[in-house]
Design a protein around this nucleic acid. Sequence first.
DNA 1: CCTTTATGTCAGTCACGTTGACTTATATGC
DNA 2: GCATATAAGTCAACGTGACTGACATAAAGG
Lengths: 160, 160
Amino acid sequence: MTDIKAGPNPLYLREDQLHEAMELLFFAYRDFTTECDAILASHGFGRAHHRVIYFVGRNPDISVTALLEILRITKQSLSRVLGRLVEEGFVTTRQDPADGRRRLLTLTAKGRSLEGRLSATQRARIARAYRSAGGIAVEGYREVLMGIIDEADRRRFERP
Amino acid sequence: MTDIKAGPNPLYLREDQLHEAMELLFFAYRDFTTECDAILASHGFGRAHHRVIYFVGRNPDISVTALLEILRITKQSLSRVLGRLVEEGFVTTRQDPADGRRRLLTLTAKGRSLEGRLSATQRARIARAYRSAGGIAVEGYREVLMGIIDEADRRRFERP
DNA sequence: CCTTTATGTCAGTCACGTTGACTTATATGC
DNA sequence: GCATATAAGTCAACGTGACTGACATAAAGG
């Protein structure tokens, strides 16, 4: 009799916990991206432009191939987006002095300014979440997300 | 002189930590979704179909409006996706007995089967990450993501 | 009865991803 | 030095999944 209400079976709980994790990721990503959309739209840009601006900003002199590997899209897809960003003066390309086949991408001052405006809203959201959750929670967030990420990309987050 | 190499200023460190958080979310979401794409593509479906199947599966007898609120898309966007899922027998609609204006959405056996196949790959990924990170980390993951999610949707994750 | 709500639909547009084929420039290995 | 491989760019065609705007219908509710 005591067992009847002792709780749902542990397998059911576990499934539910996994569903919760999936939904947390879905809602967090949804809300994380929406604020930037208005700023981007005012330039006629979309999320693809944001991703390029962000990763070029974080990795000055990145090669096109390296950027493609981060984004996991085709070069034809990148081409349209990157082409516009270069055309409109947000990104510059220069030849790699060490390997003339490579084009190195860097943000212009204009690009850095837009990047800053976009990142600021997202940083604020993260900072708020980090502050309210605390340091131990932050470490847990990091460990779980690293576990979700494909092994090949985990090294990006290794610590000195 | 000792100060010169004493370390980067704390503000810079903090910015870097926030950028790490942003990238973790980006890569995790990217990798979380890619495995399902092949299964979906074999049906001629995309991620939009997956989202509908998932949330209808998790919320049997959900109304169209409630689903729209979760997805935060327009009814015109949902219409094409949902229409195909109903047409091809993955989702059924019925009139709400309590309010005849509402249509209640539920997965068919066929829909549950596809949902199960899709969720299984994602659950496996989460379960692996949860196991390797441990219970304390899982709690942190949950707290931080809840903080990132808009306040209005946080109640979805409240505990009994 | 009139207004509001829930849903569906037609029409047009745009962002952003895809595949496939082809070119050009440079690097590198035999 | 030549052949092959790599990095990048380009043209073309295509599909999904978002959007806006306008309009229709059925049911609920004051």
